[in-house]
Design a protein around this nucleic acid. Structure first.
Length: 228
DNA sequence: AACCAGGACGTGA
DNA sequence: TCACGTCATGGT
């Protein structure tokens, strides 16, 4: 049933081209809440260390914040410095706060970014474990999994509020199931494949933005037959 | 003009 | 563990 829904979403919305990147100017006008930066049908990202780090920064900035606001914040940062760990580390803290203001929570997120930079540099290019990421202040489960899946290409299924909303509406998951329980359900059922995990999560976000909103549009929803 | 967005953390039961 | 308050800007 999960695979069936995945195929239906993919057929309807097409490849999503996550994670969006500033230096990849692929306009996708059909996508909701986006400026640009997607790369559909390309699964060889990140292609540079700079892109890998930018994905991590974006994952932190997008906590409880719409992506379009994050893109503004990233563009502001890119306008004053390059988005690399070394340049962001030496950036004046007030300048950073001012730059990321569109993404909200700028005091917390500045602290999170600076702490993450220390952690990132301590890796010396190594891939972190989930537990190592979770030990960093400001990195919770969704952010850790997003970083693993999109920045390091580790097959880790990302669970977010949209995943819970859509799949509890269908009755396929318990509406008060824990994050790890939901993640396990998806990982048990899906082919353990980075591209599939990346696309499915992105498709879930896209579908939630279009139909499964807080005020859902069930009449037009392509998954309505799965809901109770 | 309330309400919510691709959460995480601190606190007190 | 778990429910709840806090953090903050800007869309709709």
């Amino acid at each position: 049933m999960f695979t069936e829904i995945y195929k239906k979403l993919f057929k309807s919305y097409g490849p999503q081209g996550w994670w969006p990147l500033l230096d990849h100017k692929g306009i996708n006008p059909t996508k909701t809440g986006a400026i640009n930066g997607y790369h559909p049908r390309q699964y060889d990202f990140p292609q540079t260390e700079q892109q890998r780090f930018e994905i991590c920064v974006g994952a932190i900035l997008t906590q409880n914040t719409s992506w379009i606001q994050v893109e503004k914040a990233l563009q502001n940062l890119a306008a004053v410095t390059s988005i690399t760990s070394s340049d962001l580390k030496s950036l004046d803290e007030e300048t950073m706060k001012n730059a990321i203001k569109p993404a909200g929570y700028f005091n917390q997120k500045t602290k999170k970014l600076l702490l993450f930079i220390e952690f990132y540099e301590s890796l010396h290019g190594r891939t972190p474990t989930r537990d190592e990421l979770l030990a960093v202040w400001g990195i919770g489960r969704e952010t850790a999994d997003s970083i693993l899946l999109y920045a390091f290409n580790i097959p880790t299924f990302v669970v977010d509020a949209y995943t819970r909303r859509i799949f509890s509406a269908t009755g396929l998951i318990d509406k008060n199931a824990d994050y790890n329980d939901i993640q396990k359900i998806f990982e048990d059922v899906l082919l353990k494949d980075v591209a599939v995990y990346q696309e499915f999560h992105a498709l879930i976000v896209e579908h939630a933005k279009r139909y499964c909103k807080t005020k859902p549009d069930c009449e037009q929803c392509i998954l309505r037959t799965y809901c109770h």
